[in-house]
Each structure stands twice: as C-alpha cells, then as structure tokens.
C-alpha cells in the first residue's frame, strides 16, 4: 500500500501509470457515457409530472455530484501537497480545477435549460442552482489565484490553502443557501432505504454518475500528463518515454 503511494509521488512512475490507465479508461468511459445517455434518453419511461424534460437529469445530477466531489479531491490534493510536499499533488490540484469548473458549468447550463419547461424561466434562484453557482465561483477563484502568481510553486501552495478554506466553508454555504430557500425539493437519491425514484429511472442515473466519475478521473489524468510534459521537458526519463 505505502509503496504504491510513494510510487504515485514519482513523476516517471506516475506518467507510465497514467498512460496505462488512460488506455483502459478512455474507451470504457466513452462507452458508459454513450450507453447511459441512450438508456436515459430512449428507454427510461417519462416522468409523470415533468414529461420528457426530466431526461436532462441524467447529465445534470451526475455533473453536479462529481463537480462537488471534485472540489474535495482538489482540497485533499492541496492538503497532501502542503503537508508532505509531494510535487505530484500540486500537479493533481492544478489539473482538477478546470475539470471541476467545466462540470459545474455543465450542471448550471443543463439546470437552466431544464428550468425553462419546468418552471417557465431560464433562471430560478433555486437553492441547488444557487449553491452550484457559488461552487462555480469557488473554482474560478482557485484558477484566478493560480494564474495571478508568477512563481508556480507558490501558486500551488496558495491554491491549496484557498481550497482548504473553501472545503471548510462549502457545507456552511450549502446549508445556509438551503435555509435561505427553504422551499427546495428533498434530495431524491438515497442509497439506503426506500428510493424516491423508480428503479427504471434510477439505474441509468447510477450508470451516468459512475460514467461521470470515470470521466472526471480520465480528464484529470490527461491534464496531469500534459502538465508533466510541460514541467519535465528537460528530464531524461521523459525523453526516453517519448522515444
């Protein structure tokens, strides 16, 4: 276990590891996304109240779930980089931010499109959409802070501190926005007990959530590889790897 962790901290080992994982993950993720979309779009029954517009749930909810989880991944990478000073954790944190921001963006846009047939307006200050918007701002803040520093090692440390502060704040923000808008729908997926949505709708949703987690991992690994190519261009191991 620990040797694996130590190996993860070594750029050459990680580069090879990422190459192998990407080779498997890329087709799997694309296939799962395609299968989940077709299942959700064509085979799942329509919602009895919202009709067919609810099919947006199969991208909206996975994007939102993974975007929120992504912030925690970023903060954990930041913590690892601050405490153990592992360079690869910096790279990981840097790679997560744009992916998380893109997924938050997807969740916001699909939420807005879903809102039009459901509520009759493109934008409603619903608790969940508002929380998503604030999460988007948090991602943008981390990215802006990284860009503002000329010294990228200092930038990574600063972003680590900021994302940890954000992590402490996120539950408070979500809770406060919930109270602010107390008329929100109750959370509809529960993994224990009776589920509020029917199995024929739930299974494609779970598949899509899994696919989005895979997509997140894939995009982060791709970004990290690109980053390693940039920062280690003088290293012998990279030259022999590319040969």
């Amino acid at each position: 276990m620990w040797t694996f962790v130590h190996k993860m901290g070594s750029p050459p080992w990680f580069y090879r590891f990422a190459t192998i994982v990407i080779r498997w993950l890329l087709p799997t993720v694309l296939l799962a996304l395609l299968a989940g979309s077709v299942w959700g779009l064509l085979y799942a029954p329509p919602d009895f109240r919202q009709g067919n517009s609810y099919r947006i749930i199969y991208i909206h909810v996975p994007a939102a779930v993974v975007a929120l989880a992504g912030y925690y991944v970023m903060a954990i990478a930041g913590l690892v980089s601050l405490v153990w000073k592992i360079k690869m954790a910096d790279t990981a944190m840097r790679a997560v931010a744009p992916v998380g921001a893109a997924l938050t963006f997807v969740a916001l846009v699909t939420g807005a499109i879903w809102g039009k047939p459901t509520w009759g307006a493109w934008w409603v200050w619903d608790a969940r959409i508002t929380s998503m918007l604030i999460l988007f701002f948090l991602y943008l803040g981390v990215m802006a802070l990284f860009e503002a520093y000329d010294d990228k090692a200092a930038a990574a440390k600063a972003c680590a501190v900021l994302s940890l502060v954000g992590t402490v704040n996120i539950p408070i923000i979500y809770k406060s926005v919930d109270w602010w808008y107390s008329l929100h729908q109750p959370a509809s997926i529960k993994f224990t007990g009776e589920s509020a949505i029917d199995a024929s709708m739930l299974y494609p949703l779970l598949l899509m959530i899994g696919a989005f987690y895979g997509l997140f991992a894939l995009l982060v690994l791709l970004n990290m590889k690109a980053e390693l190519l940039g920062t280690h261009r003088q290293s012998a191991w990279l030259r022999s790897e590319l040969r």
Binding site: G141, A148, Y149, A158, G166, I173
Partner: peptide
C-alpha cells in the same frame, strides 16, 4: 494574506472572498 504579494491583488481578493461570505 494570499494576495498581499501580488501587484494586482484588489479585484482578485473580491473574487476569492465573495463566495466565502455568502453564509
């Protein structure tokens, strides 16, 4: 504290802190 060493810290500071002040 995170932006004190940066030349154009003013707007960046608001960008970083406004989301955190929502509660």
């Amino acid at each position: 504290a995170l932006t004190v060493g940066l030349r154009r810290g003013g707007v960046l500071l608001s960008l970083l802190t406004i989301p955190l002040t929502v509660p």
